[in-house]
Amino acid sequence: MLELIIRRTLNVIPICLVVFTIVFCLMRIAPGDPATAMLGDYASAEAVQSLRQEMGLDRPLWSQYLDSLRGLLHGDLGRSLSSGAPVSDQIASALPETLALAASSLAIGLLLGVPLGIVTAVRRGRPVDHAGRLFSLSGLSIPSFVLGILLMLLFAIDVPIFPAIGGGRSGDLSDQLLHLALPSLTLGLIMMAYVTRVMRTSMLNVLQEDYIRTARSKGIGELRVVLRHALPNCLVPLVSLCAINVIVLISSSVMVEIIFSRPGLGRLLISAMRQRDYVSLQSVLVVYAGIVILVNMTADLLYGVVNPRIRSR
């Protein structure tokens, strides 16, 4: 197991390097000058020039590249071009917000989706099945920002139960949870649609297997058959689905963070992009890539846990 982790990690390093180089080069091709972007239409050419110097944009590209690479290897992500604040601080404050959102959405998706998937499979062809399928089709098809807007309209504006903007006061857990409610419900419902569908399909497949028929013929109760005998065999597809969908979730979290003005990575990404803050932008992109790589690795390892046959290979 440990060997697998190490091998995987080593594999990831060249990818990270390529990712970083791609990101660095691309960011420098982008048109528009961060100094101009920062200062706006009120700035004089003098102000722009002085800011450019301060930002270090007048240095040659290769020296900027080597500096950021050296910094990255030392865990120093540099300073934001816009405000001069350390980028690692920004990421340290934004990353937990995004991870909390992703984790709570995944939890909502699994807690609601797994039972619904089982019920629709067991009651195949009944009204509950049709309703469940319609629900998953809708969930798979609705863009996260549309759902987010609808939920905000319903539960923050028309019936003001939950706050609509921000991430809550730092240090105040209940306030933060309150602020997490609508964003995680938005992504959780979408996640639930994926989970329901996968659970239903794999449960249907499993229920046709011979050993289930055998179990039934032995007179074991239906509930026990489903939970004890069928469910464990649905876990492999569920884990692979979760891996794919955590990545979808991270993607959608950008939109949800924008809608609900949550101070997460997605907002950081977008505002860094608008300000042409290359230093923050490249770090955020590298962090996103890191999350995806990590999720894929975890999923690989989880396969081994839920499916011993893979581990022995």
Partner: peptide, 15 residues
Amino acid sequence: IGDIATLDPHRGSSH
């Protein structure tokens, strides 16, 4: 605005 540029008043020029 996405972020401040600087809090030094002799440099700041965004609104």
